[in-house]
Design a protein around this nucleic acid. Structure first.
Lengths: 335, 335
DNA sequence: GTGAAAGCGCTAACAA
DNA sequence: TTGTTAGCGCTTTCAC
């Protein structure tokens, strides 16, 4: 590997002079600058950021920790994060927790050791608090994205979960549904709680009591036990509509219904929170509340970098990103 | 930040002893090991990989460069790459070139400077050769994935593009189609060339000459000029079927056809190379050739790490991953 | 089983 | 405008 010293020797100057040329800092005579630059090119010199990081105590790396890299929401979020990071001269180290605390923990340790300058963090659940505490102990700035964690003081970028869920539910109610199942994420995830609250809001608005037997919980990334849903469907007074708390669950549920020969929306209406990427372009079928996924990432990283630069002088921020309801064809009047 | 020296001082040992405990190397008495470990925990010590990288001349970081992070194929590939990397103790630095050479170049420079130990690289086009040469100059190992680059000697993990495209085309021919449009990627991308060759193979097999006017090219990630397709549709002897060279194009094409009121498959049959992620689960509609995306990433990273470890002693490898044809509903007999 | 010294490639701080 | 010195946090090498 070519080092600063190789350049320095060839150019007959000190290492500092070369360093100054590389960083455009300090006053350098045009002639030495030219000479050094020429030699740098000749030797294909590439600065060693490892060494620079060590002395500058910053890596210009950020970490993006998401819970499901195959979910189009997070993928688009990542795209936004990438753009913001690149614009501001940062690299992005990815991590994908699969909604698992243990994998999340591994990633946090990794990032700590890598000395990333900050993290954009979509926590797996409230129990992520433990990992976030670790970050605080080490004074590594982070911004929570998509999900909040009670008891953790931090900048957050969130969606309008409660009102969005209420709109979706109200829409089903307006169509005439009275028995609406909620297939939710786990109650230990803030978005699931908020979506549940919105669901209840809308029901209450219509004077309908909340029926516990209509609500079941799954991991956001896998519909692993169809029996839970099956039991809801076999209730004496079964649902005529399903509100899926996220896109992955919605898709699995529809596949499941299809497998049982249940037509959507003819025999069962389905709506969901978050759009489904390519699928909605291929076939605009699912009625959804769509979130500005790109902005989650873009604004999250901007906020993170702001935090890194201004440390404590910056007041704690909460950004709420608006969502949009898109009415398509997966919900109709009750059968 | 807590350093090895802080631990050493508190434990009344040398920095080397601490280092040895951390790395489980050398002989250490049980008692010192215990003492050092205890203090490490107390102080929440986390090794500084930046410093370690500097001396060891390795970062335990790999880079994954893909061309479209919102494409489910690459997303699933990334998932595989992540698993393989994590299993073998490496971190993954992501880059997304958007099929753009300039962005790719920026990433290559970044990765060079970051001193990643190797790259899994999905090149934007044949012109990526220039960037790959850069990697060779700096002796950074890389593995090409999904796409080959002529003139570049490297390990590669590729799909069965030619035979897969031939199968898809043969399927349309068997349905009775004789005028089949190919909406391809740019000819500067190896997969586009191979898929084109497969398309021609199948036509030739049926004694049908290749008609240049039925073939148009787009970037794999965007259907940016519908007029090009429109012109094909308005041919005196128009196509009755469309073969889309990738998933993103297929989805856009179908949306476009729908916009024109053209029913698929009633008025126009459509097939495509690569599956469409969630979309195919939501609605098993598109007839496709599906590639084992996860394996592309998983095997690519394994191969890369093999290459890193064994450098020149390892012979150059080419892995061809099988694809599978999935017949669904988007293609039928000619209208 | 443990330690001292040197150095990885770079830059901050101070000199000249 | 340029150079010298020291040190970032760790591991390699050699010594005991």
């Amino acid at each position: 590997m070519v080092t600063i010293y190789d350049i320095a020797k060839r150019a007959n100057v000190s290492a500092m002079t070369v360093s100054r040329v590389i960083n455009n800092s300090g006053r350098i005579s045009a002639s030495t600058r030219e000479k050094v630059k020429r030699i740098m090119e000749e030797l294909h010199y590439v600065p060693n950021s490892t060494a620079r990081s060590l002395v500058k105590q910053e890596t210009k790396m950020l970490s993006l920790l998401i819970t499901d890299i195959t979910n189009p929401f997070f993928t688009t979020l990542a795209r936004g994060a990438e753009d913001a990071a690149m614009e501001l001269g940062y690299k992005l180290l990815f991590g994908n927790s699969d909604e698992k605390l243990s994998k999340e923990r591994e990633y946090v340790d990794m990032m700590l050791s890598t000395r990333v300058d900050g993290l954009l963090f979509a926590p797996a659940s409230d129990d992520s608090a433990e990992h976030l505490t670790m970050l605080n102990v080490h004074q590594v700035p982070f911004v929570l994205v998509d999900r909040d964690v009670p008891g953790v003081e931090a900048d957050v970028v969130l969606g309008e979960n409660r009102s969005g869920a209420a709109r979706l539910t109200a829409y089903l109610l307006a169509l005439g549904h009275r028995r609406i199942a909620l297939i939710n994420g786990f109650g230990t995830v803030s978005t699931a709680r908020e979506r549940f609250a919105g669901y209840c809001d809308a029901l209450a608005e219509h004077g309908i009591g909340y029926d516990k037997s209509l609500v079941v919980e799954y991991g956001y990334n896998r519909f692993d036990d169809p029996d839970k849903l099956e039991r809801v469907m076999r209730l004496p007074d079964p649902p005529t509509a399903i509100f899926a708390a996220n896109n992955v669950l919605a898709v699995s549920i529809i596949a499941f219904l299809r497998g049982k020969g249940i037509g959507v929306p003819e025999q069962m209406s389905v709506v969901c929170f978050e759009d489904v990427g390519l699928a909605s372009k291929l076939d605009p079928f699912l009625t959804v509340v769509m979130q500005p996924a790109y902005d989650f990432g873009y604004k999250g990283v901007r906020l993170l970098i702001d935090r890194i630069r201004r440390k404590d002088e910056l007041e704690r921020q909460t950004i709420r990103l608006p969502s949009e309801m898109i009415i398509r064809k997966s919900a109709g009047p009750p059968a």
